[in-house]
């Protein structure tokens, strides 16, 4: 299994955590992105994610390699969902192991921030009023 993965199915967090386990690691920082029920003042009922999978996986792997080069970490994994998600579903998971907590927190933050900026994944929000729309990286509508 790759370190960065686009998944059309629910993310198995406990399997990912087991993959991070390492005798050299004294810290593990994880980030979970969940589907919330509102954005920019509008009620959200559900989301759809699309991804350009080959490029998303290549760009995601590049981000994880950058994190390993920039921070003193042991392991880094990330999985991002595609398809239809409901409120409360896990949309993205990042996990980093390191000897010490500082590098683990910093690398985890770096990875999620870069994924949101660079990886070709698109979120379509379906609103409570029946409309839907694609979003920019800052969560504002495309048009």
């Amino acid at each position: 299994m790759t370190n960065f993965h686009i998944s059309g199915e629910a993310i198995d967090v406990s399997a990912l955590a087991r993959r991070l386990a390492d005798a050299r690691a004294g810290a593990c920082a994880t980030f979970e992105g969940w589907v919330r029920d509102h954005n920019e003042g509008r009620g959200v009922k559900r989301l759809d994610y699309q991804a350009y999978v080959p490029l998303a996986q290549a760009e995601g792997e590049r981000i994880l390699a950058e994190a390993r080069a920039r921070y003193a970490i042991v392991g880094a994994l990330c999985v991002h969902r595609t398809g239809a998600l409901a409120i409360g579903d896990l949309a993205v998971w990042v996990g980093v192991s390191a000897a010490h907590r500082g590098a683990a927190f910093d690398a985890c933050r770096y990875i999620i921030d870069e994924v949101k900026k660079r990886v070709p994944i698109w979120k379509n929000e379906h609103y409570a009023d029946g409309e839907s729309g694609w979003l920019h990286p800052n969560n504002t509508p495309v048009e």
Partner: peptide, 10 residues
């Protein structure tokens, strides 16, 4: 060829 709109993962 793929034209890539502004992304919004996460």
């Amino acid at each position: 060829v793929v034209f890539i709109p502004p992304v919004s993962g996460g």
